[in-house]
Simulated scan of single mutants.
Amino acid sequence: MELAEQRFVDGTAEQLQDLVLSSGDLDEFLGELAQHLANGLSHADGEVICAVTVARPKKPAATGAGSQKAFELEEQQVEAGDGPCIAAMSEARTVYVGDVTRESRWQEFSQAAADRGCGAVLAVPIDLDAEGLAALSFYAPHGSGFTDGEILTAENAARQVSRPLRLSLRIGRLRDARDDLASAMKSRTVIDMAIGVVMAQNRCPPDEAFTLLRKASNARNIKLREVAASIVAAIAGTTDLRSRFDL
């Protein structure tokens, strides 16, 4: 491995930690990651572009790219369910297409890559354990490919990326759980307030008030929270309410 490539790999871990901490969400992290990795493999003979694709259980695939071209090529593979990136993820192996004009396995993808000025494609899997599947995709311009040393550098970078990406995925799940909880608490607050309104209007206990709300929800075929929100809005003039747990 050349000195510049070794420095790139050595400096990747610390920079990726900073990226995880500074990124607002997974998509932003993947985009910054792709740009960082592309810079590491680009050279005077041609600019390499990069994309990172993550497949998660029960969620749509997430893609981050350092350029629109790389993003479009990744999205095409995700939609088709096939291509170098998909093969690298599903087979857990590095896939190298040295010349897209001679590639017969993924003809539509290869034509799309050639049309966008990409001559070679390198896809490297990322080990995420049980977090899902992921791969790095590197695209080199026409007339340029990837040397054995550059392929090794990409594989080493994929190993460096593994832990920060798993961390980003876990942080994302925690954010989703937080948002779901906040939404649930806000819904609960609106429903509780509506129960209070119905109790006052009908001079009935809480259980009976809740039953009336539920019957209204079923009769109108709308969610219970929406029925409650309409009642609260009629009294308070707004449904933009903060729960007791909001800071």
Rank of each mutant, 00 (worst) to 15 (best):
V198K: 03
D179Q: 15
M89T: 04
L73Y: 04
D25I: 11
L167C: 06
L224D: 04
Q160Y: 01
G145R: 05
C204A: 09
A177D: 14
L241H: 08
P60N: 11
L21W: 09
D192T: 13
V100E: 04
A140L: 04
I126A: 03
N39E: 15
I195V: 15
G145S: 10
T239N: 07
V121R: 02
I222C: 08
A120N: 09
R163L: 12
G117D: 07
A88E: 07
F29K: 02
Q6M: 11
L133I: 00
Q111L: 12
L247R: 13
A112R: 05
V197I: 15
M199C: 09
A113S: 08
A194K: 13
E208W: 01
L73S: 00
I151R: 15
R175G: 11
D207G: 04
F109I: 05
R175W: 12
Q111I: 12
L19N: 06
A157L: 15
L133E: 11
M89R: 10
G117Y: 10
V95H: 07
L167F: 06
D99K: 03
A61Y: 04
R244G: 06
V197Y: 05
L165G: 10
P84S: 01
P60W: 09
L33A: 14
T239W: 04
K69E: 05
R163G: 05
R7Y: 13
K186D: 10
S162K: 03
K69N: 00
T239K: 10
A55W: 05
P125C: 07
L21Y: 05
A134C: 05
D115W: 02
E150D: 10
I195H: 08
I231L: 14
G64V: 01
L165F: 10
D176V: 12
N202S: 08
A154P: 08
C50D: 08
V100S: 05
I222D: 03
P206Q: 11
T153K: 04
A51Y: 00
D207K: 11
Q35E: 13
S42I: 06
D45W: 02
I222W: 01
Y139Q: 10
R166N: 09
A158W: 01
